[in-house]
């Protein structure tokens, strides 16, 4: 990134529901190369520095993402598993975003649920 890169403001809204950490992307409709690094760091920090191990990611605001973000999700999935927890995704509102998980085969790797109620029941 260039010296003029965006400051590291919070890109995530985090809410603890029982032993599950529910994560929304704040204004990050755009999960592209330019901001995926900082979002990835903030997601990893939940596990590495804050001891969260059951993560539920809300995709309702995600309108665009690239393979770079998929890579972060794969790494995050490994981290929560190593911590003895679980990663789940829910509320994928845009067809193209869901298609990306299908095309890449990651629908088989990740736990994807229709909404947060269904996802929370799975933990």
């Amino acid at each position: 990134m260039s010296a003029g890169a965006a400051p590291k403001r919070r890109r995530l809204e985090v809410e603890d529901i029982g032993d599950v950490t529910f994560v929304r992307f704040t204004d990050s409709k755009i999960l592209d190369e330019a901001n995926v690094q900082v979002i990835g760091e903030q997601l990893f920090s939940l596990v590495d520095n804050h001891g969260r191990k059951n993560l539920l990611l809300d995709f309702s605001r995600v309108e665009y993402m690239t393979s770079a973000f998929l890579g972060k999700l794969v790494t995050l999935n490994k981290k929560v598993q190593q911590a003895g927890g679980r990663l789940a995704l829910c509320n994928i509102a845009h067809k193209e975003i869901f298609d990306i998980f299908v095309i890449t085969g990651l629908k088989r790797l990740f736990n994807i649920y229709r909404d947060e109620q269904e996802a929370l029941q799975s933990f």
């Binding site: 393979s67 794969v74 999935n77 890449t104 790797l109």
Partner: peptide, 10 residues
């Protein structure tokens, strides 16, 4: 599937 990269061309 668990490799963090290599999906762009796909």
């Amino acid at each position: 599937l668990e490799r963090p990269c290599g999906r762009g061309i796909l």
